[in-house]
Write a protein that binds this DNA or RNA. Sequence first.
DNA 1: TTATTATGCATAAGAAAATTATGTATATAT
DNA 2: ATATATACATAATTTTCTTATGCATAATAA
Lengths: 115, 115
Amino acid sequence: MKNSPLYKGSLTTIIMKLLEENGRMYGYEITQKVKKTTNGELNITEGALYPALHKLEAEGLLDVEVAKVDNRMRKYYKLTESGKKETVNRLEELEEFIRNMQTLVNPKTNPDLQF
Amino acid sequence: MKNSPLYKGSLTTIIMKLLEENGRMYGYEITQKVKKTTNGELNITEGALYPALHKLEAEGLLDVEVAKVDNRMRKYYKLTESGKKETVNRLEELEEFIRNMQTLVNPKTNPDLQF
DNA sequence: TTATTATGCATAAGAAAATTATGTATATAT
DNA sequence: ATATATACATAATTTTCTTATGCATAATAA
């Protein structure tokens, strides 16, 4: 599947929300979780995911913990305190974004509910 | 206002939907319409808008018509037949995108309505 | 009257965030 | 043996934007 350009800019919000929900996850796990949740409609590529994780870590929003499971490396990520606060902001931005898009694209629908 | 990264990739969809709704519009008019509709929360910059309009035109999705009003130039854009068809696709993609984001971020909420 | 704001277009340089294409390595299924 | 799944990583390129300019006319404020 080719992801729509609309997903551009949404990756870090998705990552942070999943970590908020699940405590800790590793990269490959995130890609599988997203694929399953969206019924295969959104596929996060490694070329997007790993640089994004590294950047969030560099910004102090994520912590890493390396583990070896079945002789294979895993890097578990979790939100830092700072990351937890930032997650709240990102989710608010997402809600505002969705409200605005719905207003622009569907001006007759009542634009509330959902959150 | 600084637009959230979430808006990346949504500009052409916004433009095409506004043109579908209003028949024809010129660039500056689009920026004002979006600003007003979103209560100032989304500001389309010229550096993003004009290249986007030129690209949509080059792709055959928009037609241009130059006019002079009050001694000032305006370039009115409208959807071509091809553009009208593509608008339907873009709006479907937007709906799918919003559904997927809501499912990812708010897994407990019933993800329908709104469209 | 002069400066600022609003209207209206345009493009160039740079940044951000992705895609696409590789690369390494282990485990499992055919 | 070969392909698929798991698990990480990065480099080159593309897409899409921001920021900074530039030009020009009209209206408004100082």
